[in-house]
Design a protein around this nucleic acid. Sequence first.
DNA 1: ATTATATGTTACCGAACGGTAACATTTACC
DNA 2: GGTAAATGTTACCGTTCGGTAACATATAAT
Lengths: 210, 210
Amino acid sequence: MQTDIPNRGTKNRNKGRSTLPVRERILVAAGDLFHKQGIRGVGVEAIAEAAQTNKMTLYRYFDSKDELIAEWVRGIIAHKEEEWKDLNAKHRGDPRGLLQDWSQRTAAKLRAMEERGSALGNAFAELPDPNHPARRVIQEHRLREHKRILRLCKAAGFQDPSLAANLFSMLVEGAHSCVQCVGMRQIGEDLVTLVDRMVANSRNEAPARL
Amino acid sequence: MQTDIPNRGTKNRNKGRSTLPVRERILVAAGDLFHKQGIRGVGVEAIAEAAQTNKMTLYRYFDSKDELIAEWVRGIIAHKEEEWKDLNAKHRGDPRGLLQDWSQRTAAKLRAMEERGSALGNAFAELPDPNHPARRVIQEHRLREHKRILRLCKAAGFQDPSLAANLFSMLVEGAHSCVQCVGMRQIGEDLVTLVDRMVANSRNEAPARL
DNA sequence: ATTATATGTTACCGAACGGTAACATTTACC
DNA sequence: GGTAAATGTTACCGTTCGGTAACATATAAT
């Protein structure tokens, strides 16, 4: 992790750069390049340059490139956790509505996604070493995520919650893959449609044929 | 591509190695390492060694590492195309049965899959450069695959073939992702179950609630 | 045996990379 | 202004990597 080293005052020591503090700038720049060029395809020097700083400063904030990667991943996951808190607060006692809202937000993100799929998915594929800190973090996050869905499916009254949860997971993960060959708009809409039908089915309202 | 260079007779010039000719050995070894350690995580020297040969020989058969990667990918895809021919021959005029058989075979492969997801998916994530030969090949294959599914869904009589095809694609692609966090046996079984229900739905036989 | 071909061996090149040391410079606070 | 901390600059180290040249050896066909 490595916190509280510099920026002794809270003031900015930026000249013409971004308004963000150095550490954040590095993380943003790193994430940008990681996502666009692949983690192994970008060097620390390029990251530092993109962050409008230099390699030495980068290494004063991060112990290694691997740790920088891990921190970037942690940031993404933290952001996702925030969104789950939002969803939970907004749909207390309404797991079906929550699942629908979730699918809609996912679809919106799919539409905003460029050429290059899911950041976490790509990172996971790029880091085969099971001991890589970033990989472990992603793995834990995936498990948490799946447990969350499963809990929701139970609460939503699905007849077979495990099957429903796995279907949800497959849909969302699969959507991120298919975006690259089917087109994001269509996939996003279909995702929402399918989740709506699932939810309707769980209520025993409509037959919901395909 | 680069064909017909060596092995002038058809005889083997192998001493104690595998029974395969050099080129195949290199491709097999490369695929093995690519899949286990990631494409960018393995060097040509290690590939040559694993193939029981050396770097020079490798470069006599492949113009570059990138071309070796592309050839490996082409091999995987060719293998998948073969399987589609099998499926088509086995289920002439029975698209529903074909889809079910396809899901069963996919499930079987999921069960046999180790820690590290889909080879094509990982390769795609590892090669962000849109001009990389391997990436282009994968992209084309994905488009072909999706067209194929769509055609099958039309033939199977789905009310909304486009939606059904996208659902199929999402399920299969998503299954390959979820294997790593849910467990392959469960995901495989669920995939088959879900496809069975879809097919039943398309026949207007059962309501198939979730 | 000779000859053409395929493979092995060694050594090397240039570039890129992750990471560090030493020192200079700027910034903020007193 | 002085001082301590944060940042910038430059140069460097060791390693790895993709790729090649030159030469030696093994193999097969004639």
